[in-house]
Amino acid sequence: MEDCPLQVTHLGKVFRRRLGLSSFKAVDSVDFRMSGGEIMGFLGPNGAGKTTTIKCILGLLKPFSGSITLWGEHPGSAKVRRRIGYVPENPDYEDLFTPLELLTMFASMRRLDTGRDRMMAILSRVGLSSWETVRLKNFSKGMRQRVSLALALQSEPDLLIMDEPTGGLDPTARKEFRDIILEENERGASVFLSSHLLSEVETVCRRAVILARGKKVVEGDMEELLRTEDRYSIRYRLAHGGIEEEKEVEVGEESLQSSIDDLRSRGVFIIRIAPVYRSLEDVFLSATGGGGE
């Protein structure tokens, strides 16, 4: 079970409305599995059930059906909580505290070292080293996100669960967040990243799950998802009249060999043959039907 930080099996979540007269199915029979050391992207339009799934994983919501295990354990158990770092969507901590106070108190609650040097090192890592004594009420949304990341990182978690972590961040900060995610992954942590920013997921994730209307519509390795089924691009160099020119042609798998033979027969120098990749946005739009609920 150590190699499976997260397994979700036939997860369903139904919210009952007032007096139980009506209900709303937020998540419908979703299943996926994460491997150890993996960065998994979790995508879907608004209302697809991403945050609901994450809350079930964290034990904040009771699943209506199905099961969730983290390293084979029940979500919310003390053993599991010790190994998790969580970056919530729009974090809002007690704003009467400073980041240093919050970090120290959270470290104490987690029975970690509360030394000031260690806290300052974490704050410095998320770019808040000069803000340690300023109360959170004076912080922007992006700075609160940084505090949230610092709190998640302080225990060196084995699984980092991030729900829209870069929502309110500027491009520079987003890049810093991405770097931290990759650093954490290099350290050995698995990362479960829910995001609307497809470019971000495309850059850092090795696998992705896409939800739409509460159901899983796509799951797979990023390479597989982005790769078109049978299209290849051939990049070649053409020389005529003493002038060299680089060109690229896209062909189907069935005509790949004949195209190569044809180019060679014309004395063309072939630089590269590579499969054609789609953007994650194309994959997302085709999987979700092009929009939200």
Binding site: G59, I84, P91, Y93, R110, S155
Partner: peptide
């Protein structure tokens, strides 16, 4: 309301 409870219950405390 402010969702402060979530990160506290999700991670350090039962």
């Amino acid at each position: 309301e402010r969702k402060t409870v979530m990160p506290i219950i999700a991670v350090p405390l039962s």
